[in-house]
Simulated scan of single mutants.
Amino acid sequence: MNNCESEEIVEAANIAISSLLPTKSRSLYDIAYNRFKKCADDKEFLMIKVGLILEIAGACRTDELVNLTVDDIEDRLFLYYKAGKCSSQPVGKNTMGKNPSVVASYLKLPNVACYTGHCLRRSSATLLADAGVDITTIKRHAGWKSTTVAEGYVENSIENKTKIANQVLVGTTTSAITKTVNVSEK
């Protein structure tokens, strides 16, 4: 792959990422990501970075990540990489599941234990809900059969709660104005 192709891929990825993040979260995300990107050396954090991208973009379960393969590679996609050395030992479910807490610790975020592989899967669904994606698409994306599970993510979406609250307030205000005008005309 030449440098132009590489730049085109990076640009396409940036466009895709920018359309997934809620506007309110963008600045906080950019600050944390840029801090992580500048300080987190690929020799130690490359597998974690790739894993985070796949977990959020694909709403992947840790089992799905550790079983991920590349067509032309006979081994797992993720191999154990530490202190600048790669071994043939594949990354396991527990290591993959701890990656978010490793990043949270690195970024000095509070409640590091709350950052799990599952929280990234929830983040993926919540980002979709915040973007206005319907329940059927969220269910399909995350592989859920139950609408109740998918709706749980939509309920927890701050963007969705704000949107609904605004609809209620606008609906109430419009209704109240209409009633007031109708009463005063009589």
Rank of each mutant, 00 (worst) to 15 (best):
V102G: 00
A129G: 03
Q89C: 11
L127H: 06
S87M: 09
K139W: 01
M96R: 05
T62D: 12
L127C: 13
K82G: 12
V91P: 07
K145I: 09
T62S: 13
K108R: 10
D71F: 13
G117C: 02
F78A: 07
Y115N: 08
L120V: 01
V133G: 01
A125L: 09
R76V: 00
H141D: 04
A131T: 08
T126I: 15
Y81V: 05
T136F: 09
G97D: 01
L120G: 07
S105I: 07
A131K: 09
R121I: 04
L120R: 00
P110D: 07
K139H: 07
N99Y: 15
S101Y: 13
L77N: 02
V70Q: 15
G117V: 02
I135F: 00
K82Q: 15
R140Q: 10
T116Q: 07
R76P: 00
R61M: 07
K145Q: 14
E64I: 10
T126F: 05
N67L: 13
D75E: 12
F78G: 00
A142T: 05
L65I: 11
P110F: 03
V103R: 00
F78P: 03
T148W: 08
R61Q: 11
I138V: 13
S124W: 05
T136V: 14
D71V: 04
D75R: 06
L79H: 12
S88N: 05
T69Y: 15
R140G: 10
Y115R: 02
T62H: 04
Y80Q: 15
D130L: 06
K98A: 14
K93W: 10
T116K: 06
K85Y: 10
C86K: 15
T136L: 14
D72F: 11
V133P: 02
V66P: 00
D63P: 06
D134Y: 08
P90Y: 03
Y80A: 11
A129Q: 00
V133A: 04
T95L: 11
Y81C: 07
G97T: 03
V70L: 15
C86N: 06
E74A: 12
C114L: 09
T136I: 14
T126C: 13
F78T: 03
G132I: 14
K145N: 09
V102Y: 07
S101C: 10
Y115K: 00
C86M: 15
T148M: 15
T116I: 12
D130M: 05
G143Y: 03
L77M: 13
L107D: 08
K108D: 13
S124I: 02
T62C: 14
P110C: 04
G117K: 01
T69A: 05
L120E: 01
K85D: 12
S123V: 06
E74T: 07
A59N: 01
H141Q: 08
C119G: 07
L128A: 11
N99G: 01
G92Q: 10
